[in-house]
């Protein structure tokens, strides 16, 4: 860990220079204006970055854990196996993910627990993760669908980030969080000044306002206890309007379930890893035809339990960062905040 986190200041007019200096050593990805901040894309010039976006539609997870990933190729005639080159970077440069929301940064720290822990370690995820720095951007104006403070995250959460930016009046307040973060800005050091007491005060005030806009809806600790009742009666009702599509799980930054299958064309084949969703019936279908989660009731229970009960037990964290994507995009407006409230109110 970093001995001392530094607070630095960057004038907005110097941002362009700052960006150029960084892009000499790094390839920069961010929410771009051109694709309407749909996902993190490669940014070539500083003015392409969409700073005012609320959150990208696709979460950050696809950057490290793509929807489809070829693990290796094989040839059944030649009897050989080809390893894939993990897309780290073509120019031997490292990546910067710029303008990540604190919730997404935190979600990566959760995925690290799953894929990047000591045993076993996922080769594909880890390689990408090692070559990437995360520069997050504190939320000064959280959306009405955000509920990060209810799940232990927040508009200025530093977890998962290497550096965090705060947008002050006319300048950026930059806080280095990890040693990698320190190294990242080294080349642009001359543009940065140490933060003064006034700067810090302004930042604190700014985040206070942002925090006050976020209502704490439920307490994740109590929720976990409440969810210990696997056969609670509310499970019979909650799922009724759920259509069983995979929007919530695919857009979720922490959902990480996958499937591994082989695809073969003639004698050439590949083994792929693809996202899967507990909301699909196929997810648990056995070869015998038996399905241990036969209806949406069991599938929805799985989704809620995994995030709010099992994950805290295994990883010590609620696997939800409150980004609100599932709330925004659910076709039947199944609002997880409401579901939580309903569960908490149930006796």
């Amino acid at each position: 860990m970093l001995k001392e986190k530094r607070n630095l200041m960057l004038y907005k007019q110097d941002f362009e220079k700052f960006f150029r200096l960084l892009s000499e050593t790094f390839t920069i990805f961010g929410p771009s204006k051109t694709d309407g901040s749909r996902s993190f894309t490669k940014i070539d010039a500083s003015d392409e970055i969409a700073f005012d976006y609320e959150n990208t539609k696709m979460s950050l997870k696809e950057f490290f854990f793509p929807q489809t990933e070829t693990l290796f190729f094989f040839d059944t005639e030649k009897n050989e196996v080809k390893q894939t080159d993990v897309e780290t970077n073509k120019h031997d440069k490292q990546n910067i993910l710029f303008g990540v929301r604190p919730c997404d940064a935190m979600s990566i720290s959760f995925l690290d627990k799953v894929f990047n822990a000591n045993n076993p370690q996922d080769l594909y995820y880890t390689r990408r993760r090692k070559s990437t720095r995360i520069v997050s951007f504190a939320c000064t104006n959280p959306a009405s669908t955000c509920f990060c403070t209810s799940v232990g995250c927040g508009p200025d959460s530093e977890t998962g980030a290497d550096i965090i930016f705060f947008e002050l009046n006319g300048r950026y307040f930059i806080k280095t969080v990890t040693p990698e973060g320190e190294k990242t800005i080294k080349s642009a050091e001359k543009l940065l000044n140490p933060a003064t007491k006034n700067d810090i005060e302004e930042k604190v005030h700014l985040m206070k306002t942002a925090n006050s806009n976020l209502k704490k809806i439920f307490d994740s600790g109590n929720l976990q206890k409440k969810l210990d009742n696997f056969n609670a009666p509310y499970w019979g009702k909650l799922h009724r309007k759920c259509l069983g599509c995979g929007i919530c799980t695919y857009l979720c930054p922490t959902c990480h379930c996958f499937d591994i299958t082989d695809e073969v064309i003639k004698s050439n084949g590949r083994r792929i890893r693809t996202w899967d969703s507990c909301m699909f019936s196929l997810f648990t279908l056995h070869a015998s035809g038996h399905n241990p989660r036969p209806t949406q009731k069991e599938r929805m229970r799985q989704r809620i339990m995994h995030k709010f009960n099992y994950a805290p037990k295994y990883y010590g964290k609620t696997f939800c960062v409150g980004c609100g994507r599932c709330v925004i995009y659910c076709p039947v407006n199944m609002d997880i905040r409401d579901v939580m409230k309903e569960i908490m109110e149930e006796r």
Partner: peptide, 11 residues
């Protein structure tokens, strides 16, 4: 047409 590129090193 379904196809996939075969890049990678031979193990």
């Amino acid at each position: 047409r379904k196809d996939f590129e075969k890049t990678g090193k031979v193990l």
